[in-house]
Design a protein around this nucleic acid. Structure first.
Length: 278
DNA sequence: AGCGGGACCTGTGGGC
DNA sequence: TGCCCACAGGTCCCGC
């Protein structure tokens, strides 16, 4: 389930394999893997990949079209949801391959970029400024947590909703999913069901620091691999070894030894320590 | 405004 | 061994 650190890792591992290459063909095997507002994948033909980045949980490839007009694409976006993968290691087309891009390097070398997705929730979006302006998920996407200050987090959590629900709301903060919400709340010692607007100034500060710390450490560990996540080279991450809360329901708290409790918050499985998180 | 639930999906694992 | 079902979770949408 790629969240911010996993997507960041994918972008970093993908970049050296795609930058400067030209898309010579695109093959869409599952139509619903392309967002309804997207330009057709055929419009990518001839586009040079000039940049690679991330916004929230979205992978973004910057494109230079062969001729620029109102209909030409400027970006290829990918939302991987739970099981989506962008792979450059050429394992070939399999039952879960949803789209394949043919790439051509200036050196003359040909390669392929695979979009695989077991559960088919992930989507590609061939974008320019016109169709992006119509995509509400994009236009309403909240700030980047690694660029936020405590004031920004106070604004994002200023709600009667559970603080965990605020963290998961991509309109409030971009890039946090179930894993890093639970981890950050544990590190900050905040109970996930607390209303966001009940947090004190110091608690907001602590949560901002925990969010930044856990995201940066997870990026350094190349993300968390529960089962499906792999980077562009097909490698697993290592941050799952550092989990303090996520997936640890019923196990002893790694701070105090109390039994970690499991509940549902905002429809998600949620693990917290009843002693450490008040 | 915000919550719960359903829908979308497939693979996995526990229980029997 | 095999079947059934709960569960995993990001986002949208609906009704309350």
């Amino acid at each position: 389930m790629p969240e911010l650190p996993e997507v960041e890792t994918i972008v970093r591992t993908l970049s050296p394999h795609v930058l400067g290459r030209t898309i010579t063909g695109a093959h869409l095997y599952l139509p619903r893997s392309l967002h309804p507002l997207s330009l057709p994948v055929d419009s990518l033909r001839g586009c040079r990949i000039s940049g690679a980045g991330r916004r929230g949980k979205l992978v973004m490839l910057e494109l230079e079209p062969p001729r620029r007009d109102a209909a030409s694409p400027e970006r290829l976006l990918a939302h991987l949801r739970m099981t989506g993968r962008l792979l450059v290691k050429d394992a070939g087309v399999n039952a879960h391959t949803r789209c394949v891009f043919d790439l051509h390097a200036p050196s003359g070398e040909d390669s392929r970029l695979f979009f695989d997705d077991i559960r088919t929730f992930g989507q590609l979006f061939v974008a320019n400024s016109r169709n992006l302006a119509r995509w509400r998920f994009w236009t309403e996407l909240g700030p980047e947590p690694l660029e936020m200050k405590a004031d920004d987090l106070a604004r994002a959590t200023n709600s009667r909703a559970a603080v965990k629900a605020c963290l998961l709301d991509q309109k409030r903060i971009a890039g946090i999913g179930n894993i890093y919400a639970d981890e950050a709340l544990f590190l900050a010692g905040i109970n996930p069901v607390r209303p966001g607007n009940s947090l004190s100034r110091d608690e907001v500060k602590a949560l901002m620091k925990s969010l930044r710390d856990v995201l940066m450490l997870a990026i350094r560990k190349c993300g968390s691999s529960i089962r499906d996540y792999r980077d562009a080279d097909g490698n697993a991450g290592a941050f799952q070894k550092n989990f303090m809360a996520y997936g640890r329901g019923g196990q002893p708290c790694r701070k105090c030894g109390s039994t970690m409790q499991k509940c549902r918050v905002a429809g998600r499985g949620t693990v917290f320590c009843p002693a450490c998180q008040s």
